[in-house]
Structures are given as C-alpha cells and as structure tokens.
C-alpha cells in the first residue's frame, strides 16, 4: 500500500516540478509575503510590537486568500484531468485502490504547498525579524502561521479533489473551484457581516455568530492565528469575535476540515465511472 501511494506521489511530484507549479507557487508566496511585510510595517511604533508580529498579522490575512487559491489550482484537475485524457480508466485497472490514488496525489501536492508556504513566509519572516526585531512570542506566531497555512491548504486540496470527481470535465472543475473559493473566502464572510448588521447586537451576534464563523475553515484559520497571540490580535483588531469562543473551537474546526474534505473527496471519487 505504501509502495503504491509513493508511486503515485512520486509521479505527481515530478509533474509539479516539471510544469513549474512548485516554482510558481513558491515565487508567488515569497513575493506576496515580502510585499505585505514591508508595506504593512508602518504601525510598528504606535502599537509597541516588533516588526515580525506585524508581519505575521499581515501574512495571516494574505494566507486566508492565497492558501485556498493555490491548493484549489493544484487539485482541481487531479481526477478530471486523468479522466479527460482517458488514463483514469487505465490507472484504475492497476492494483491501486481509489483511496491510495487520492492519498498519493494528496501527499505530493501537500508537500509542494508546504514547501511554498515555508519558503515564502519563512523568507518574509526572517527579513522582518532582522530589520525590525523579533521575540520568542513572534517567532512562535510565525511557526503557527506556517503550519496552520499548510493545514488550510490541505482542506482545499481535499475540496478540490471532491470538485474534480464531481465535475464532468476539467473545465467544469476549474469553474466550480473558483466558485468554491469565492464562497469560502469572500461570500461567507460578507453574508455573516450582513447578518450581524441586521441583527444589531442581538442574540445572533453574541452567541451564534462566532460558532458559524469558526465553522468555515478559512475563518477558523484566521481566528486561531489571531486568538493565540495577543500581540497579533492587537495589530489585526479582530480580538472581539475570537474572544467569544473557547480556545479549542478554531483549532478543532481547522483540524477536522482536512479529514472531512478528504472523506468527501473519496466518496465522490468512488462514484466516478471512468
């Protein structure tokens, strides 16, 4: 089983390297992280925190958008692409189960994402630390940012496979992935914001809203990073919503999502007839 998973993963990694995906993803992460770190370094003095803290806060906001996007762009044609080429039927006649195929692709693409995240956020964090100071606290915040970004990426890899198994072609899968990204990252928050404004500080805002928010993996990611570090919370001004929840809520949601997404993907893949 391990041999078959690693055979799939090995091939997938050569594909990611060969078609420049690994390079592009890393480049995008480095450029955005650097730009945000140095553009957002202004409030350091007024808030009395070191520059790495500010940098982590900016990069958290960045990662909410970028991690799902990169993950979906890698994963959307994982199943539909093979089906379009006619090689999926062939692959499925080999002694590799659908679960093993999925896990192999997941391992390779998660490794590529992890590499891009570590290099991107690592470079920006190191530069921020050297030029504006760092502390043990802000260093832990950076490590937390990198690892939670990888978990957030894992969620959307799984969701991408689900869409890929569900769609009739790669083109349809690409469209559905874009829709998925919009819903989780943009529309969900807009909807919640609208509800809070309508509710005007009532029961919904106080008791239900934080839970609904943290059910979305992208928001759980944001809340986890912000609530865990007081300094980051100060700079991002999002402490209010996070403090209404128990500490475990956001980590639990974010860690359950990759599992749920992969199970959904496996179930969808199981119904695919090549």
């Amino acid at each position: 089983m391990i041999a078959r998973i690693s055979a799939i993963a090995g091939t997938e990694l050569s594909i990611l390297r060969r078609n420049m995906w690994l390079f592009m993803a890393t480049l995008i992460m480095v450029l955005f992280a650097l730009a945000l770190t140095f553009a957002g370094s202004a409030p350091t003095g007024t808030l009395g925190v070191d520059m790495l803290t500010v940098s982590v806060a900016s990069m958290t906001t960045l990662s909410v958008y970028l991690a799902p996007l990169l993950a979906l762009m890698m994963s959307f044609d994982a199943i539909s692409g093979d089906r379009d080429r006619g090689s999926l039927a062939l692959l499925l006649t080999y002694p590799a189960s659908r679960g093993e195929i999925l896990l192999g692709k997941f391992t390779a693409q998660l490794a590529a994402l992890a590499f891009a995240m570590t290099v991107g956020f690592g470079t920006a964090g190191a530069l921020a630390g050297f030029s504006g100071g760092a502390s043990a606290d802000s260093l832990i915040a950076l490590i937390r940012l990198v690892s939670t970004s990888i978990v957030l990426g894992a969620v959307f890899l799984g969701l991408g496979y689900m869409v890929s198994g569900f769609a009739r072609s790669s083109t349809a899968a690409a469209g559905m992935s874009a829709g998925l990204w919009l819903i989780f990252v943009v529309l969900f928050d807009l909807g919640l914001l609208g509800a809070v404004v309508m509710d005007d500080g009532g029961t919904f805002t106080q008791h239900i809203f934080p839970w609904v928010m943290v059910a979305n993996p992208a928001d759980a990611f944001r809340v986890w990073n912000i609530a865990a570090s007081d300094a980051v919370a100060v700079t991002s001004g999002m402490a209010g919503a996070a403090s209404a929840l128990p500490v475990w809520a956001a980590p639990l949601s974010l860690l359950l999502w990759p599992l749920a997404a992969l199970l959904l993907a496996r179930a969808t893949f199981g119904r695919v007839e090549p």
């Binding site: 091939t11 594909i15 060969r18 093979d82 080429r85 006619g86 090689s87 062939l90």
Partner: peptide
C-alpha cells in the same frame, strides 16, 4: 483480477509533462 489483467484503453493519453 487486477494483477492478472492488462488493459489498453481506446485512444489513450498520459500526462504530457511526464
């Protein structure tokens, strides 16, 4: 059965990057 069987699909293609 999978181990015993070989298959050539009609007009098959593979990943172009490999």
């Amino acid at each position: 059965a999978r181990a015993a069987t070989a298959f050539l699909p009609e007009a098959v293609s593979f990943h172009p990057a490999l």
